[in-house]
Amino acid sequence: MELTFLGTSAGVPTRSRNVTAILFKPGDQGSGRWLFDCGEGTQHQLLRTASHPGNIEKIFISHLHGDHIFGLPGLLCSRSMAGSVAPLTLYGPEGLREYVETCLRLSGSWTDYPLEIHEIEAGQIFDDGDLRVSAASLVHPVECYGWRIEQHDRPGTLDARGLAAAGVSPGPLFQKLKKGERVRLEDGRVIDGREWLGPPQRGKTVAIFGDTAPGPAALMLANGADLIVHEATLEHAMAEKANSRGHSTSRQAAALARDAHAARLIITHISSRYSPEGAAALLAESRALFPETELAEDFYSASL
């Protein structure tokens, strides 16, 4: 899995930071991508990556504030104008369907590909057998969600050397054995793949937060995550102002990562009031509580 930050500013863009959007590569296979939020200018940011709107299979909208959705109508239309016919699914709060349909109708636009819009509630959103995605309700002035992406455990490594010593030749049978299936050999022996697999490989977990003040759902969303992406709009001295507007500080994001026993934290959604030096100070505040903190910049990538 890999995340690429297309926008890392809060509220309004700056010279170096666009507003919120995160491109997510769900696995090692295929070119499909997911997008988390779609602030104004997201399709311009995509032009500076190896991806394009046609690669995007799913878009998750945390909430309907403009810095998270004003880029969505343009991206949907560009995807159609580029000739993409691949289906696209949107997930987000109540009102997302009305917003998209109204923008398309009033602008005389349309999509030439299947477009599904799911207005969600907290809970499991889907499980495709490889990844399970759940949503949690966050503390913000409007309905807002965070996302927990859990990769199913992988089968352990197949003991190919031991199988070869037992007279099992590499080939199609190995694929079945790696899945833990039973196979019958030409000599009549039955081999149980489960007996030739090492311990399962634990799947990775990523928690991506929308805008939020500290709240009761945060720990559940972040618990044990390999990576947390969390806003750090303001510095700790401005906690009261941040929380009153449904936002968090650098130290509050770090405290959550620490209490959730997470492996890594990436802070983003940085207020436009901060220069690069100010953003570095936010990072230092987070690292004082949770050393494994990174500061997102536009086009910064993180792999798991």
Rank of each mutant, 00 (worst) to 15 (best):
A136D: 04
L283M: 12
H140G: 02
W110Y: 08
Q124A: 10
A280K: 10
A280M: 12
V100Q: 04
S248D: 03
L197C: 12
H44S: 14
I267P: 02
S80E: 14
R79W: 03
A254M: 07
A255K: 04
A222W: 00
L282P: 01
I208T: 10
R105C: 08
R161N: 12
L282R: 04
Y300A: 10
S275K: 13
L283A: 05
S244G: 12
A135L: 01
L185D: 09
A82E: 15
E181V: 06
I120L: 00
L158G: 11
A302L: 11
L265V: 14
K204Y: 08
V183M: 14
R79P: 07
A255T: 06
G198W: 09
R251Y: 12
T89E: 15
T212N: 01
W147M: 04
D187L: 04
S16D: 14
S244R: 09
P200H: 06
G54V: 09
L106I: 11
W34G: 02
L75M: 09
D128V: 05
F5M: 09
L3P: 04
F5I: 04
H152L: 06
L76F: 04
A262P: 05
Q43S: 14
I120Y: 01
K179C: 14
D128G: 03
F209A: 14
A260E: 06
L289E: 06
P170W: 13
G129P: 03
L197N: 02
G32R: 15
A136G: 08
G108F: 02
A281Q: 09
G66H: 12
L131H: 06
M238C: 09
I61Y: 01
R264T: 10
L131P: 03
A302D: 07
R202W: 05
E240T: 11
G224I: 02
L219D: 09
P93S: 10
M81A: 15
L295N: 02
C144V: 10
I267E: 09
R48W: 13
S248A: 03
N55R: 07
G74M: 02
H68M: 01
S84E: 15
L304E: 07
W196M: 08
S286N: 01
L47S: 14
P200C: 07
R132N: 10
C38Y: 02
L265E: 05
N223F: 03
L234V: 10
A242V: 11
S137W: 05
F70W: 05
S16G: 09
L23A: 15
V85R: 15
A281K: 07
I228M: 00
M1I: 15
R33Q: 14
L138G: 01
E181H: 06
I266G: 05
G74A: 00
R15N: 13
A164F: 08
R273V: 14
